[in-house]
């Protein structure tokens, strides 16, 4: 079942990537990132099972924690951007340009 799990993981990850590349709604892009994280988690779990060790699961816990933190900060950023632009369209987010 390991190979199948890794296959699903790869497909989910790629779907996430394609989503990030095709959408312009910042919240949806954010959710695509969450999907990619989940795909990686699936790989961790599968490989943890393969090795018979729980260390991979520990990493999944960490990833979830960081994802939660990231969601909190990222959504806060999106809120403040929305306040400014009245939109979450990615095309408006170009403050990185120096």
């Amino acid at each position: 079942m390991i190979a199948e799990a890794l296959f699903f993981s790869a497909v989910l990850f790629t779907i996430g990537v394609v989503g990030v590349l095709t959408r312009r709604n910042a919240i949806i892009i954010f959710m695509c990132v969450e999907l990619m994280l989940n795909a990686v988690n699936l790989s961790f779990i599968a490989l943890s099972r393969l090795h018979g060790s729980a260390n991979g699961q520990v990493f999944v816990l960490f990833v979830m924690t960081i994802a939660a933190a990231e969601a909190a900060v990222g959504l806060a950023i999106i809120i403040s951007i929305f306040r400014h632009h009245k939109s979450v369209d990615l095309r408006n987010i170009n403050l990185l340009k120096g």
Partner: peptide, 18 residues
């Protein structure tokens, strides 16, 4: 899938947290 891969705790956390 997590549960089926013997990571029952993570499966539960996945539902709760994510």
């Amino acid at each position: 899938l997590y549960v089926m891969l013997d990571a029952q705790f993570i499966g539960a956390v996945q539902v709760l947290v994510y």
